[in-house]
Each structure stands twice: as structure tokens, then as C-alpha cells.
Design a protein around this nucleic acid. Structure first.
Lengths: 204, 204
DNA sequence: GGCGCCCCGTGACACCTGTCACGCGCACGA
DNA sequence: TCGTGCGCGTGACAGGTGTCACGGGGCGCC
């Protein structure tokens, strides 16, 4: 058990990663022992560096921060994870906690609170952005079924129903039905709108 | 003429702002004299703090970083601006330079280069991310007409042709023609795809 | 003055989309 | 066992969408 808390940083933007490292380096009881730019490098780097807390951004190429948190929970049960993200979507918070994250912080929070959040997470406490905690309760669960999420995720990139059907290996008619259902559940009238709304709410 | 370079930070994410401040504070010849979270506060803050260089993020609520750069150029001709952004869209680079920015850096760049970029900008040099400079030349100018951009920008949010027509005060048929033209110019087959592609290329 | 380009509008057409109804199979809980 | 919900598929239909052709007007340029 070391005197300092060993922190791993995971963010795809090198500049932000370096900046966060500089910020945390100001704290005498924190030590940045590893930096990675991809979600699939988190577990290996955390093991190699014996990190105590992993700071994970959600938006990363390949494996995102939520999946990385789940991987850390499964592979390194003693390591805590703290998800830091740009967008305060309620769905993100819920999914992050389900993935075993101990904390959830938005990038809007003051810089000084980050170090404190790291300490709390390391102490075994849960840290959740207060502005999101209430929103998350009001929001509730994801009403979309798995197939609806899948179809809507592909629809997010545009393309026709036939193209979507090819990607998800479904009949075009079934794709239309799922899209129609998703449109109804999001209160929209177009699949483009539905995909946008669903993504904003973290339902994808 | 002061010994240190006075830097103003503009980024809507408080955490990133603080982290960048910590990063730049490591350099003895740089001094962060102001931090703002909105584009429309840049000019006033730069004037009040007598900043030499303004570090501007593009993605900001209200006035974005590009518009802020133009405002600084008009109001404070002696102040240099350096645009820092998440997305390396060629169109952003061109528009930033047109707005009078002296530099353009992506958040993917190594942290150490940021301080160097600030020094070069302060010295009157242009700093452009090399990976984007070539792309920008290949890409060329924005092929979309003003009305096409307008219509496509509204189409980005989804909604039907009639809804778009209502927003831009045009006939539905005209909206369809503009969308059709934009679809052709983007090489796509759907307005949702066209809007996405156009945004990725910085054409909006 | 012609010419080209862009903006704006109309009309028509094939095609795609969103919706509804209906069916089948499967898993789960009462 | 039955009912229920979900996934998957089909068929049909009104309405929206993308494309094309055709006008007219304004503007800059040779």
C-alpha cells in the first residue's frame, strides 16, 4: 500500500490527457503512472503500472470508456474506475454505473474537484455529479429494445433501410418496424430525429 | 513589453480549461491571465487582462471559437489567436484562418507542443497542424452554396421537408432541390447522410 | 448585349418511408 | 397450461422523398 494514489489516464485527445496529467501532478498525494489513448489498452496498462484509480473518458476510438470500465471490473477487481465525459447524458451515467464505475464526473466540473473525486473513489466512495443524479432518476431506464438500439445505431450514420438491413442482417421490413417503434418511443417523426434524440439521451 | 507571454484560455469545459492552465503553468515564460467559458466573453476578458495570445476552443456555447477569433481580430488587432479544437475538419482550419487566427492545433497533438505553438504564434508565426495542412489543400473550398448550407444545417436536426421549409422561409419544392443538390455534391444518397458528411468536412 | 451561375418556384414521376395489421416462434412468469 | 412480451417476417397503403425538367429573376463578367 503506497502513500500516493496511482492514477491511470485514458483519453483519446493527447492534449487533454497531458493537461489532466499536469493538473493532477499539482496534488502531492496523486501520481499519474500511466496514460493511454485507447480503451482497449486500459486493462494492460493498469495492470503493468499497478494503478489504483483509472480515469476514463467515454469518447474513445475502439473500446469506449464504459466498456473499459467493465473490463477493468472483470480483470482487476481491486482497481476503481472514474468516468469523465464531455456530455452529461443521463443514460451514460446509468450505463457507467452498471459497468462497475465508482464515479461519474462531467468535464464541466471545476478543475479542483477532480482530485477530490479521485480521492473519494480511491477511498471506496461513489462520486456522482449531483446535477446528473437527479436527472437520471427522472429519466428512468432505456425504453428501447436491444434490436431497436442496434438498428437505430446504424441509422445514425444515415443510409437507406436496405443498407441498414444489410448491416444488421435483418429483413428490410423488420428494420422498418424497429425504426417505427423507436420513432414512437422517442416522440419523433423521422428516423434521423429518433437517432439523434436517442443518442442525446444516452440510449444507444 | 513583458517578459512572459500572457495567455487567455477559452473552453466551455471547466475541467479541460483548468487542466490546460495547469499544463501551461509548467512553462516559466507563459502565464495564464484569464479563463472564460464562452466565446462572447473573449474580447472583454482579453482587453481587461492585456492578453498576448488567446487559446480558443471551437466548440463553445453561443459564439464559437472561430467567431471569437474574428471578434478579437477586429477589436484587438495586436492580440494573436490560436484555435484548439477536437475535430480536425479541414473546413474548420480554412474558416479559422479566414477569421484571422494565427494558429490551428488539434487536441490530438502532444501536450508539449502546445506551449511551443503559443510561443510561435506570439512571435508572429503561423502554426498549422501539419496533418491538416495537406488535407486542407486536397480538400479545397466549400462547394456548397449559402442556401444549401442553410437548408442542410436545418436538416441536420431531422424533421421533414415541410418543417425545414418553414424554418428557412422557402417553398418545400425549393428545399428539396437544395437538398438534392447537396446530396449530389456530398456523394451521398440521403439528406441525413449529406448533412453528416458536410458537417464532418466543416462545410456547415 | 449575351453568357453563365445562383436563387426561387412549379409540376410530375419513381421510389422510399413510416404505419398498420397480421402471422409465427420463443422465452418467461402466473 | 395459458397469457404476455419480444424478435422476426410479410403484405399493403398513404404520404414523404429524391430526381428531373422547366420556368423566371438577379448578378457578375467577357
Amino acid at each position: 500500500m503506497s502513500a500516493t494514489i496511482k492514477v491511470l489516464l485514458a483519453d483519446d485527445q493527447a492534449l487533454v490527457r497531458g493537461a489532466l496529467a499536469a493538473l493532477l501532478a499539482l496534488e502531492p498525494d496523486l501520481e499519474v503512472v500511466a496514460e493511454v489513448g485507447r480503451g482497449d489498452e486500459v486493462v494492460d496498462a493498469a495492470r503493468a503500472s499497478a494503478a489504483d484509480v483509472c480515469l476514463l473518458d467515454i469518447e474513445m476510438p475502439g473500446v469506449d470508456g464504459i466498456a473499459a470500465a467493465a473490463a477493468v471490473r472483470d480483470a482487476l477487481p481491486g482497481v476503481r474506475t472514474l468516468v469523465v465525459t464531455t456530455f452529461g447524458r443521463p443514460g451514460y451515467l446509468r450505463r457507467a454505473l452498471e459497468a462497475g464505475a465508482s464515479g461519474f464526473v462531467v468535464k464541466d466540473t471545476p478543475a479542483r474537484q477532480l482530485a477530490e473525486a479521485v480521492r473519494r473513489v480511491h477511498a471506496g466512495l461513489r462520486v456522482v455529479d449531483p446535477s446528473l443524479a437527479t436527472e437520471s432518476l427522472v429519466d428512468g431506464a432505456n425504453p428501447l429494445t436491444e434490436r431497436e438500439r442496434e438498428v437505430l445505431g446504424v441509422a445514425l450514420r444515415g443510409g437507406t433501410v436496405a443498407a441498414i438491413a444489410g448491416v444488421v442482417h435483418l429483413s428490410p421490413g423488420t428494420v422498418r418496424n424497429h425504426l417505427s417503434s423507436a420513432i414512437g418511443k422517442t416522440g419523433t417523426s423521422t428516423r434521423a430525429e429518433a437517432a439523434r434524440v436517442a443518442q442525446e439521451r444516452g440510449w444507444l
